[in-house]
Design a protein around this nucleic acid. Structure first.
Lengths: 108, 108
DNA sequence: TAATAGTACTTTGACAGACAAAGTACTTTG
DNA sequence: CAAAGTACTTTGTCTGTCAAAGTACTATTA
């Protein structure tokens, strides 16, 4: 994490990043947390508090749903699953990002 | 302004956009406001309140300086001028943006 | 076996940037 | 003369991010 990733530059992409991971497979908080570090090749760490507030937001909006895993031993895990509304939001957010990225490039 | 530019996606770029304009020539609030709309081809409007808080921030940090124009007639104009600290900040911010952009692309 | 590190989830409170809304004051145009 | 445009500024609100703290269990290792 030598990087210079400011929260302000990545802001607004959090939900989309989370949805992007859940699009592949159901997953739980800590795993998603790790996966983001891995996918960014160690350059970006989405803080747990931020991640959980993203979960709350997305669930309230009906973009993800959750269920407890059936771990017989080991710590309990809360799994999240993307809904069809979540898929739609992902597509729209990604398109918005591409659009905005181009505008910013024009402006800098 | 049909666009889908969310404030959260552009957040963190405001100061850099302003500095980018001042890098070419000294300018004043309302002109910069117009120029941003123009440069984005009508797709993005940086609100005046946001622009002025950017000015305040940048001036406090020594990245821009200001002086009143000598308009003999017409409304008074406060001109802003980029400093060498501002040039440096611009370069760094732009590099940070390029870097972050790549990470986000990996994550979406 | 006791301590430590790791897994896993959650809440609280603070901060900063963006902006809506409102206001002041002057000028140009219809 | 009214309305629209130019130009600057303040106040208060909202939202996303995150630091810090806490709970609880498991695996490692000294």
């Amino acid at each position: 994490m030598k990087g210079k990733i400011s929260s302000d530059l990545i802001r607004g992409n959090t939900d989309t990043i989370v949805l992007g991971i859940l699009r592949t497979t159901d997953s739980y908080g800590y795993e998603i947390y790790k996966k983001i570090i891995e996918k960014s090749e160690g350059e970006y760490e989405l803080k747990e508090a931020t991640l959980y507030s993203s979960f709350r937001r997305l669930e309230k909006e009906g973009c993800i749903s959750s269920y407890w895993g059936d771990e017989t031993q080991g710590g309990r895990r809360k799994y999240y699953k993307i809904t069809s509304a979540g898929e739609t939001l992902y597509e729209r957010n990604k398109a918005d990002w591409e659009f905005t990225k181009n505008i910013i490039n024009k402006l800098l």
